[in-house]
Simulated assay, not measured.
Amino acid sequence: MERRPDILCIGSVLWDTIGRSQASMRLGSDVPGRITRLPGGVAMNIAQTLVRLGLRPALLTVVGSDPEGEVLLAEAEAMGMETSTAYRSEDLPTDSYLAVEGANGLIAAIADAHSLERAGAKILTPLRDGRLGTEETPWSGAVALDGNLTEDLLREIAHSPLFARADIRVAPASPGKALRLQALMGHPSAVFYVNLEEAGLLCQTEFTSSEAAAEAMRARGAARVLVTDGGRAATEAAEGRLLTRVPPAVMVARVTGAGDTFMAAHLAADLEGATPEAALDRALAAAAAYVSGDRD
């Protein structure tokens, strides 16, 4: 490892295959469009934005020793990420994600993150073997955690001495996996980045505004939370602070990865010492530029 990374991105690093059409779609639609394959996964998406913002993230993940994994890590290294911290498996394939998007948003998606789930705590080895820390001298810095991790591993992280000094930032992989994050609710240094639906699942109710959702998340034990609601107002809630901002209005060209872009931009602004207002504004602007297609 050439130098200490600025942040750790722990979770899914895989290949995204995404079909996009300019037509509105419904069940059974068969429409023209474009199909692309690119590096993806929550941890990878966050890392890509961090690299664009001048930071060097390290990837703690599992990648197969198959050709797909070789190319994926080569691309990540070329982008400016630290990849020597990734666990290379001889018997697990590189994970993948498949999504279909139309003019009316995400139609359907399937995340095959079974290798990440099966690898479990092996992906945390660099935090205990001295490369990034040990139990006696744990990593002290920012960590982006991906909700694709199993609930058991998230629970282990919540109580592990390896994370005793970490600034933990948490993102659900999808609404379907949001409940896994209950394991970190109440953790004093965990910051949650969720959308309105995910907040509702974690609070076992439905919300009509990000402000109500953020307040409810705080009441359930979240030390700090940011709730987004698509093109509508987003809210940050923390001790003594409730901050709401409206994102820039843009035409939506894509949606997969928008939440990860928001989280990464907000985290980078936080690390630079931006005010809460400025950090939220910068994150919303970055997400808006991403969904509009103005940013790769």
Rank of each mutant, 00 (worst) to 15 (best):
L127M: 09
L60M: 04
S189P: 05
A286V: 08
A249F: 06
Q204Y: 06
E135G: 10
A109V: 01
A283R: 04
R37S: 14
Y193C: 01
R3I: 07
P248I: 01
E135P: 11
A265D: 09
T94K: 07
E136G: 12
I107H: 10
A287D: 09
L179H: 12
I46C: 11
L14A: 14
L55V: 01
S160C: 05
S65V: 06
V100R: 01
E151W: 03
P138H: 11
A144C: 15
E277F: 03
D294V: 00
L50F: 08
P188G: 12
E151F: 02
L153F: 09
D270L: 15
D270I: 11
V225N: 10
V62T: 09
G231R: 08
S210M: 12
L267H: 12
H114T: 13
L124G: 02
G273I: 03
P126I: 03
R218C: 12
R169I: 08
V71G: 12
P276C: 04
S174A: 15
L162M: 13
R180M: 00
A283V: 01
Q22Y: 00
A171G: 14
E156V: 00
A108I: 10
G19R: 00
L153D: 07
D91Q: 12
A23D: 14
V194P: 09
I10E: 08
G11M: 12
G273N: 05
T61V: 02
L92I: 10
T49H: 10
T134W: 14
R37Q: 15
I35V: 14
R241Y: 12
M185Q: 15
A144D: 14
H159N: 14
R282F: 00
L72W: 08
G273C: 05
G120Q: 06
L284M: 05
T261H: 09
T208H: 13
G80M: 08
D270F: 10
A78G: 15
A58F: 05
R180T: 06
L145I: 04
A78I: 03
P161F: 03
A199W: 02
L184P: 10
D152A: 15
D270Y: 13
G11P: 09
L149E: 10
G230N: 02
R131V: 13
L202F: 12
L242V: 14
D146V: 01
I107Q: 13
E101G: 00
D146F: 04
E101T: 00
S24F: 06
S65E: 15
N148I: 00
G257Q: 09
F207I: 09
A86Y: 11
P172Y: 01
G221Q: 05
T205S: 12
A222P: 05
D146Q: 07
P188K: 10
Y290K: 00
E215D: 15
S209W: 04
A47E: 02
Q182R: 15
L154H: 11
T235A: 05
A190F: 07
I123C: 06
